[in-house]
Amino acid sequence: MNSILVAEQITKQFGPHFALKNVSLEIPTNSIYGLLGPNGAGKTTLLRIINQITFPDSGHVLFNGEPLKAEHIAMIGYLPEERGLYKSMKVGEQALYLAQLKGLSKAEAKKRLLYWFERLEIGDWWNKKIQELSKGMAQKIQFIVTVLHEPKLLIFDEPFSGFDPINANIIKEEILHLKERGTSIIFSTHRMESVEEICEYIALLHNAEKILDGKLSDIKKQYKNNIFNVGMAIQEGESFVNELSEKFQIASSAYDKAEARLQFQIQLPSEDTRHLLNHLSSRGTVHYFVETIPSANDIFIKTVQSKSVYE
């Protein structure tokens, strides 16, 4: 597996305070990678190190197999959490300036900008000043500026904060489109549920340390606890639940007598559901039988708890 970015044993200290402690990551090429963790976990510091805004006290970063150096800046697109634009500058002029700073020629930058302005239907904004635009509009410009130089690696820090749902969706679609065309993407956020569905890989940071990383599906498999939600039609549901609870852990059961509908949560000792399903079917009609998959948030909380117990 190729990795667009490898971070090895990164440590960064601000005075006595550790921002990152021996953090190692591997970001597979052409994947969507979620860097998750609460505020203050060290995500932004790590992203700044990748963007060569700050430098680690120890450890090193490889980009595409080479040690990170100044030329790589042109291959990375970064949308920081603290983002903004010059208020009194015109949209087009500003976008051109930022694109040129990334190393594009003026003509090339203009061509690509016109394409993107067309694509996001903001062609008539070219001569507007930023202060005339709404926040959501400005974020579109920021997105364009981030991706304009066609970077190999795109980094979004809290990408959807400040976007209204419609714009957030447009941007999400664009990001997926870029992924299809071969771009590797890092999402960093403390709102884990916002990126869970699109990340293939995640890493969890907590108090400057990485506590978990890997393929999201593997992690979920690892953390699943064989709990199932069940809904069925059955006469005398209460006694059935009692019967079940002698053998299994049953939680949040509810029985609607009038409709003869029963729902409950059940934990099995193993993945094998055949025996239970047969038993349920023999007693009534099963409406649904769904495995509860832990969310990234659940996993995070669980990991943090087990860590602190361990410590």
Partner: peptide, 18 residues
């Protein structure tokens, strides 16, 4: 100060040295 308050600073220094 303007670059700081308009929050453009980090966008720029991801392209150029401070």
């Amino acid at each position: 100060i303007e670059e700081k308050t308009s929050r453009i600073i980090e966008v720029i220094i991801s392209s150029v040295r401070p």
